[in-house]
Write a protein that binds this DNA or RNA. Sequence first.
DNA 1: GTTCGCATGTACCTATCGGTACAATCTTTT
DNA 2: AAAAGATTGTACCGATAGGTACATGCGAAC
Lengths: 193, 193
Amino acid sequence: MKAKRALTDRESAIPALAEAFREHGFEGATLATLSKATGLGKGSLYNFFPGGKEEMMEAVLENIDGWFAKAIFSPLEHGSDPAAAVTAMFDDVTAYFRSGRRVCVVGCLGLNSSGETFAIKVKDYFARWISALAQCLEAGKVPPAMALDLAEEAVSGIQGAIVLARALGDEASFQRIVHRLRSTLLDTIGRFG
Amino acid sequence: MKAKRALTDRESAIPALAEAFREHGFEGATLATLSKATGLGKGSLYNFFPGGKEEMMEAVLENIDGWFAKAIFSPLEHGSDPAAAVTAMFDDVTAYFRSGRRVCVVGCLGLNSSGETFAIKVKDYFARWISALAQCLEAGKVPPAMALDLAEEAVSGIQGAIVLARALGDEASFQRIVHRLRSTLLDTIGRFG
DNA sequence: GTTCGCATGTACCTATCGGTACAATCTTTT
DNA sequence: AAAAGATTGTACCGATAGGTACATGCGAAC
């Protein structure tokens, strides 16, 4: 029972940690911040994450990766209906990033030097996303080279939409950009599929 | 003479400050970092920027804004040849951001809460960029609504390309994405112009 | 009900943070 | 060359950073 309970509590702290890292970045999130965000004291935090902030971020990345793998990557890779999978991806992503109000932790990590520790995970996350989307497009009869190009463009475009929407404080711009990307992909599938 | 010399030295420190902020972010850049980056001691730094880090970042933003206004915004707004202006913009931006190796300080500021102090400048920067590009497209006979959409997409796309290129550690992806964006804009101008 | 072991809050550690004070130095003006 | 002012390095400040130590708490197992 102990093991399960410990794991549960550790696991249940991760979303709060993720939100704190999202809001303040890795360097900007202090232990006090993380403690307040999770409702756990320093003692508990270091009990669950002996490696400190770094291990917390590691756990957050793991958690994010797990969510994306299940909700986004897997359907793209193994879905039977490419167009539906693309549509679902954009819907889920829009909800996940709250139309750009919510920042992409992984993308942010890549931007400044504090994230170099996590460089491999950051790279893998984006590589897998692009690859999954390209695979989906190929399943929609889009030629491989074009599929890869479009996938890259879409993933990059989503990140850009987050940056822009945050900067302008305007969710509508996120919606417009993502809508456009979706149309491009669906049109292409429609043209070849 | 005193004023000129002081101004000169202050001014010449700004690029180094910008680079440090780029690399480490606002919170991540410590005074020790900034001191080393500029070669100036704390004394000199606070002599030139009595307001501390905040004033330094303010100066950096001012400087960036000045550069963009001159090199990017103004040609877009007042250039006689829209297609040439668009081409020049993408060339200059690619060089400026070193194909995505270099991060956009302004975009990064918008992403985490430490940048809230500079929210207005961040917003204005992107708003002006989009507006300038849209104006250029309109000069190329692109209908206003479409011009605005495309401009938004392009600016957002560039930011996304930076995020992705940094994350993947791959300049080529930046090049590909930006190339695509440029083609889209030029094609549209060609269709209407 | 006592023991056992994880969970937790508190106190504390050192290093470093952003920032200030100021004496020493260097420039410039006269 | 001497006065005046700008420029700089150094020492220092309180606050807080991330992290550790540990005594206490508390629930499960026997």
